[in-house]
Structure formats: structure tokens, C-alpha cells
Amino acid sequence: MKYTFLLFFLAVAAYPDAGFAAAQEPPGKCSTSCHTDVQAVLPENHMLVEGEDNISSCMQCHLPASETLRDTSVFSAKVHKKHFSEKKLECTYCHIIEEGLSFALPGRESIGVPDAQTMKFLPEITAEWANSPFLAAVHSAKDVACSSCHGNRLPLLDDKPANKTCFSCHASYEELAAKTPGKDHPSRNPHGSHLGPINCTVCHKAHEVSATYCLTCHTFDMNPIPAGKQ
């Protein structure tokens, strides 16, 4: 069943509001009350979109992170910010979720098994990513979405991204050290410490307050850490 989006939307413009995600057959439709003209909300040079009236049409090109090596973060970030954070749609409006079994986009492979804990925290954590005093929000502001740090699968509560993941955007320990010498004493450099190249996540926490590990032993002044205690 394929339609040209535009025509399709006109035809179903009066489709009743989907209401609560639980009550609706996934995936939710784009056209319900918002995108009577989907083309109108796309970037200026965006090609004409054809396909079903749901997220799967986007997925024809914007592949889920699990299926491509391309950086899909920007698309994912924009879609989540708009629909989840701003419009308050439930996760299940687009994702097909079965607790204890699977988590997928329509017509795609599952990317993980959401346990009860994940189900409980995922909306909260996603909200925090979009807007919070934590480092995750610093990333969302730059349109960096979940998969950039958590990889191409459902994030786990215990995830601690490896340094090489951080370095895919943030260069290397050496380059970071060059940017962060202590203001008064250059050797008080969090990226050039006597502990060596420790895990980035020891100090930098995406979903809680970040804190400079040096200061668990030392009492001197150091440059403030992003998204740290104010």
C-alpha cells in the first residue's frame, strides 16, 4: 500500500486523533492532526516523500542507526525533540515496543529487549536528554541523539560509552589536554592527570551531575566541568 504522501494526507485529513498511544495500532499516523501537509514541514530542498502515513516513510532514507554506518543522529535528534519533547507523543507513537521482548521501528528489526526498568526510565531519560542540566542535554542541543553514545541498540541503564566513542567527536586526550590546562597552574589539567587516560565517564556523566574526579582527593581550584555542580 503506497501512496503519494500529499494525496494521502488530503484524503485522511479528518482522521480522528490517535489519542493515547496504547489505544492505537502502532505505528501512529503522521497526518492525524498535525501534518495535513507533510511536505510543508520538511526542509526546503527536501525531496518529495512517498510512502505510508507513518514514520516508516522517513525510514526509507533515514535508516535507523542499527542499519547504517551513516550518522543518523541529526534526524533522530530533530524528530525526538519535536515529537517527544515538544508535542509530548508517547514512545509507542512511532516505536513498536513489547516489554521483555522487542523494541523496533515499524517494519524493522528489534534493536533490543526493554526490561521493566528500561520501560520505566526511557521516557524520563529521553526527556532529560532534551532538556536538563546534564550533559545529555548539551548533546541534544547539538542534535546528537542516543545512538551516538549508546551505539546502534536500545540503551541500557548501565551503559558507559567507551572513550573511543567520545573521541569520535572529541578528538583525543592529547587534544583535549591542550585545551584544558589549569588557569593558574597548567599542570592541574583534568585531561593530563597522573591517573593517565581514565574513562571519560568517570567525570563526564550524561544523565546525572558531572564532577571532576581529581577533586575527590585534591582540594585545589580547577576549571569548571561542563554540566557540573553549579
Binding site: Q117, F121, I125, L157, D158, K160, K205, H207, E208
Partner: peptide
């Protein structure tokens, strides 16, 4: 006891 911190109780 593995991990923990934040929302995770570890395992």
C-alpha cells in the same frame, strides 16, 4: 556487584 550509579542499581 557490577556497575551502579545514577538510576541503575547495578547487578
Amino acid at each position: 556487584k557490577i556497575g551502579g550509579g545514577g538510576r541503575s542499581g547495578g547487578k
